[in-house]
């Protein structure tokens, strides 16, 4: 049984302090697109400077280091119970080293556990796969960005929406509009279509692991992703809601089968501090990736 504790600490440090290059490049492009001297350009400038400072000082990009969401893919024969113990230990160490702020509070009493562990905290999803190595994906999802996620059961009482691509489009546009002033924009939207209330949101969050520049395997979803990105940006909400050209850096959609009676569209909002990293571990060989 491998011990990946220290590796996971590295993964957490990297996610928390070193923004992935595709996100940083998208923020740079967004800055270049804004008119010089505008508040939108200034906000992106400040964000980019903050990203660089965090990288050089090894300090968290945002003080809300959020909920650590782990997705683990393991080969046959590796104990998921052992991996869970190691991941929880890694989270404690990362908190001690201040890569994470202590964020886990008891649901009702509000008491902080002090080390980022608690009941189902951090969140860890496991899946066995056919490869001979372990892959661990990590998202650090801040409270402000998680709070403006949304789930629609279509048809919706709020607006006319049909159970098809058009309905998905309307739901995502509505959610993006409602997120203004909450999650720090420009953000990224992960969307899950179908499933039940849980699996639909899970799918939405999984989308956040995709590189910004990828193509959806489904050509109709790919077209919708690009259309939505363009249309949300037309809303003009802009960086930090100051007004401007870029409100989202990307929209990523995944689908699942559903029962005939339900049609869920779930939207996971990720703020500009999109702290995602992926690590593959094969014996002594460790690779850090920006996405999967």
């Amino acid at each position: 049984m491998p011990d990946i504790t220290e590796r996971v600490v590295e993964l957490i440090k990297s996610a928390s302090t070193d923004l992935s290059p595709d996100i940083e490049q998208a923020l740079m492009a967004a800055k270049a697109a804004e008119a010089p001297g505008t508040a939108a350009e200034g906000a992106l400038q400040t964000i980019l400077e903050n990203v660089r400072m965090s990288r050089t000082t090894g300090r968290p990009i945002c003080q809300d280091t959020g909920t650590p969401l782990f997705y683990v893919w393991n080969p046959e024969g590796v104990s998921q119970r052992e991996l869970l113990k190691q991941i929880r230990a890694a989270v404690r160490i990362a908190t001690e080293r201040a890569y994470l702020r202590p964020n886990a509070v008891a649901a009702l009493s509000g008491k902080n556990s002090g080390d980022n562990t608690g009941i189902d905290f951090p969140t860890v999803h496991f899946e066995e796969w056919g490869h001979d190595y372990i892959q661990v994906g990590l998202l650090l999802k801040g409270g402000g960005s998680e709070n403006c996620g949304a789930q629609y059961s279509i048809p919706s009482a709020e607006f006319e929406a049909s159970r098809d691509l058009k309905g998905v489009r309307k739901a995502v546009l509505d959610a993006a509009h409602k997120a203004q002033g909450f999650g720090c924009s420009p953000g990224i939207l992960g969307v899950g279509v179908g499933g039940d209330r849980v699996t639909s949101m899970l799918k939405a969050k999984e989308q956040l692991f995709r590189p910004l520049a990828d193509t959806n395997a489904s050509s109709e979803l790919d077209a919708l992703e690009k259309q939505l990105q363009r249309e949300i940006n037309e809303l003009g909400i802009g960086p930090m809601g100051f007004g401007g050209k870029t409100t989202v850096l990307g929209v990523k959609i995944g689908e699942l089968h559903r029962v005939p009676a339900s049609f869920f569209v779930s939207i996971a909002y990720m703020c500009w501090a999109d702290r995602r990293k992926v690590m593959t571990i094969k014996e002594g060989n460790v690779a850090l990736l920006a996405a999967r």
């Binding site: 400040t46 903050n50 300090r59 968290p60 990009i61 003080q63 809300d64 930090m240």
Partner: peptide
């Protein structure tokens, strides 16, 4: 005055 959300390191500086 609106500060830049998330820019914790820079503001601390």
């Amino acid at each position: 005055l609106h500060a830049i959300g998330g820019a914790a390191t820079l503001i601390a500086g």
